[in-house]
Design a binder for these strands. Sequence first.
RNA 1: CGGGGUGUGGCGCAGUCUGGUAGCGUACUUGGUUUGGGACCAAGGGGCCGGAGGUUCGAACCCUCUCACCCCGACCA
Length: 566
Amino acid sequence: MRFTRAFIPTTKETPNDAVLPSHIYLTRGGFIAQVASGLYNFMPLGLRVLHNIENIVREEMANAGVHEVNLAFVTPASLWEESGRLEKFGKELLRFRDRKENLFVLGPTHEEMMVSLVRNRVSSYKQLPLNLYQMTSKFRDEARPRFGLMRGREFLMKDGYSFHATHEDMVREFHLMEATYKKILTRLGLEFRVVEADSGAIGGSGSKEIMVLANSGEDTLAVCSSCEYGANVEAAKRQRLKAPASTGIAKAEKVHTPDTTSIEALSHMLKVDSYYTIKAVAKLAIFNEGSQVVLFFVRGCDELQEVKAANAVGANSLEDVDAAQLEALGLSVGFIGPKDFGKLTVVYDVELQSASSMVCGANEKAYHLTGFDMATVSNAIFKDIATVREGDACPHCGASMHYTKGIECGHIFQLGDTYSKPLQAHFLDENGKAKPFIMGTYGLGISRLVAAIVEQHHDEKGCKWSSATAPYRINIMISNTKDEAQNSAGEALYAALLAKGESVILDDRNERFGFKIKDAELIGFPYTIIFGNALTEGNVEVLHRQSDTKHIVPVSTIESYLSEQL
RNA sequence: CGGGGUGUGGCGCAGUCUGGUAGCGUACUUGGUUUGGGACCAAGGGGCCGGAGGUUCGAACCCUCUCACCCCGACCA
């Protein structure tokens, strides 16, 4: 491609609505253009990057024995009624009616469609396992689209679904997909971590997220500094905390603690480590039908993890409750402590199991208890509901864990029969008995990966693509197009590389050196070959964008030099 | 959905308070000069100021309504 014939609208100025580097450089570099909130047009450069990623995904999918299909983008709402997700998915699901007034949705994910495609067409265990995927546009009417391609409403996703006769076989495929995703991300040159995750609205168990590490990531991960363990904080586990050097207060008594409603104030007043205090967190748990106030107790040094807490009580989500609402239930806000609350649902963090010498609320205004022993609480339910903190011990190896930010680029789930059962997708096993398919589902955000790559590989000048992802691997820049020698030498190399089938672009624009080099840096071609002043000595300069360094290479050896590099 | 902000040539902005011929930078066109870090000179083209209604002799500017986009939060396979 010649620059003079290309559609690459770069800009010097940053669009005012771009915040993240990926958004800024993809827009300025002429890769994408916003159409409406969360909707983007892909221009030639952006599409070429997208295709590079797609091709890598296709290759690895083929290697793993997965077959590609293409499901209809518009899907009948009736399928979503069957699975029960029409209501559950809420407003994110874009619904509309056709001319015959039939209700349809734009697919945000395609479990229902894939199950309906396979059911009644695969009917014997002999036809299993089966793994199918597609790479298509998805639409989710996000409440707040943001960060360019990172959280758009329309986006490109590879979504795969596997069907198995047994749980064991599904787990085998799950591991194969995890390994396959690792290969893909490695080929894309990304630093990533596969972490344990909360399964959210998709359902199932044993889900893992593929997180690209980047400061701008929306998710917080707790990762082990020693072993492979990593998890989204929404699901992270840890070993029991180590007790601090100081001790709790063994003497059991009721102490007057006016205006001491925070853990900080309490531990300061009684001179006790917050480890030995008990924090009460009241939340309004939202269920499919109705809602109710729930009490959670964690150590004073811990924070409640809302996703874990919601899962602990089987709630869809948790909301804050105001003090008045709690007072109405007879709770002494600021002084709530463990006890048998009767009908009220109460969950204690596992850390509190068999804890003693504790300080906690006395369930009476202005009073706390010391020397409290959790064993005195009857009917206590203990669950892991606290947030893993930096420095906590890894559940596998005990080493210290720390936080890091990640961009969720993939999510794989062990679904089981969550969808096959309600959608009545059955096969006959060896004994001729009908069973629902055991399924797995595997998502990978292709367009989000474009943004993730830039987030991880950029500098203050622009993008830094790898050879595997670059829109063009080689940019031949003629410094002064009026200079005959530069022009003909550049054209010659361009022709030679094209003949080799190399991914190459020729910057033949009649612009000054500075203008063209800035564009090359902004777009981020891995290699820019400069035909300029050095040509009088028979040399060209090669700009390595990854390291941002220049190298002098004789024109006579430039082709072999490039073959070595690529 | 709650809170805040912004809508003016392609892009980035001023002008709005205090109503009176729509401006700047950049990009674009033409000619010329330039050619190693986003050039220079000259001459041009392009916007009924997000939309609707109202006040006024007169509205980008004041009033009412509305739409869009952005930010924080809630939400989010």
